[in-house]
Amino acid sequence: MSSYQAGFRVWRGDQDGGELEDFTVEVNEGEVVLDIIHRLQATQASDLAVRWNCKAGKCGSCSAEINGRPRLMCMTRMSVFTREETITVTPLRAFPVVRDLVTDVSFNYAKARDVPSFVPPPGVAAGDYRMRQVDVDRSQEFRKCIECFLCQDTCHVVRDHEENKPAFAGPRFLMRVAELDMHPLDAAAESGLDRKKTAQEEHGLGYCNITKCCTEVCPEGIKITDNALIPLKERAADRKYDPLVWLGNKIRRRGE
């Protein structure tokens, strides 16, 4: 086992102000950034606020920005840094700070509530749902999401423009719309809910300029942009910008 002393800069403060504080802390082989933050808490800064839970990359609690990049602290190995490097850890910079490394991510829960949930198919009891695997493969990729909100944090639409928050759901919840729109048993359309239309008109799909930062930071490796956002944009284009689809729908409706 080889140990060394690492330089850490950790943001400390709250909404009234704060700053990056320097620490020198012991690092042992095999440790991750969250281990070091815990050691700081135990030895030098007992009141350091940090949100964490599973320490296995599955709960999505310990999201932070490490050397300026949104990452899970529990999944960032210390071995990716050189021993001479000073490692900077800050809270997520897209959300209001509560204290130290803890931010208020309630924006995301509000946006989650805005997405209408799965609409059960009429005449099929809950226990009788039958789906082919090929029909649910796409939705299942999106179900890997651990709600760490790193994609929401890095998305420049809200990170750099607070004023866009009311209009833009963010990649995580546009992915949720895509998941439901691709779900083989979702009966939203039959109940009068057009998810493609709401994606654009209520969840701000048009704000996304597909620069793929959400995909880059996703710890679950979900291809958010290629498999959710772009397909959703294409579905919205079917609905709003394709005269052939529009004409087909008109004819079909007249025939009903």
Partner: peptide
Amino acid sequence: PPTHSGVHGATRATIGARHLRTD
């Protein structure tokens, strides 16, 4: 509601730099 926008908004962690990336 805060009048500033982006990472320098009033409710965000007060960090002067536009980014802290080292790569």
